[in-house]
Amino acid sequence: MTFRRQVMIILRRDLRIEGRSGEAIFVTVPFGLVALFLIPLALPLDIELLARIGPGMFWSVTLLFGMFITFRQSAAESSSQQEQLRMLGVDPAARFVGRAIASALLLLIFELILAPTMVVLYAPAAIPGWPAIIPLALLAAVGLAMIGTLAADITASLRSRSALAPLLVAPLSVPLLVPAAQGLESLRTKNGIMVPTMFMVAVVLALAVAGVVTAQPLEETT
């Protein structure tokens, strides 16, 4: 049983469960959309202001609300399910990677639905070369999925989990939020998008190493 095959089996499991429960797509995505509607209602009626803050709001909502995709209840494994995986000899790192990829794919869908909605609602000024931020969105999804998966494992089965996991993820996701949000700014000021992209690649790699290395010690029980 290769590592890649284990990853694929775990990934297929998570996506199939999401397909049945729809927790991410039919609950968290609408929640994010509601957030995009709420913010302008709390601000003065100023179309120019909205156009300016639109992209930033998109990234904030993606991180603050999208993170709930990674803690979705339907993907939380019970202790007997975890035991079963361990009895079957599943590599804890493969489990981490499989779960993180599943969350990353769901986060991409989240972004794909929220981004056009933001453009319609906030009407930000078009910036030439905007497709260059698509890789940033991809990297943000992958990075956030990994932080969230780690936090989900760290807080698994704790009673205050639903409040604790977001507290852990939010400050740790700053290295994803800032460069992703600066992508558009860099394009506007013609500074090039290379620096934020490379920075995010480095962050994602660091998170991947951290997740894979800590998977084993996290899994051991008493």
């Binding site: 290295p175 600066q182 700014e185 934020p196 660091a206 951290a210 800590t214």
Partner: peptide
Amino acid sequence: IVGALQIPLVYFSVNIW
């Protein structure tokens, strides 16, 4: 461990942009 790894990245990301 993860927190200590992320803190420099937080610093750099804020510092750069």
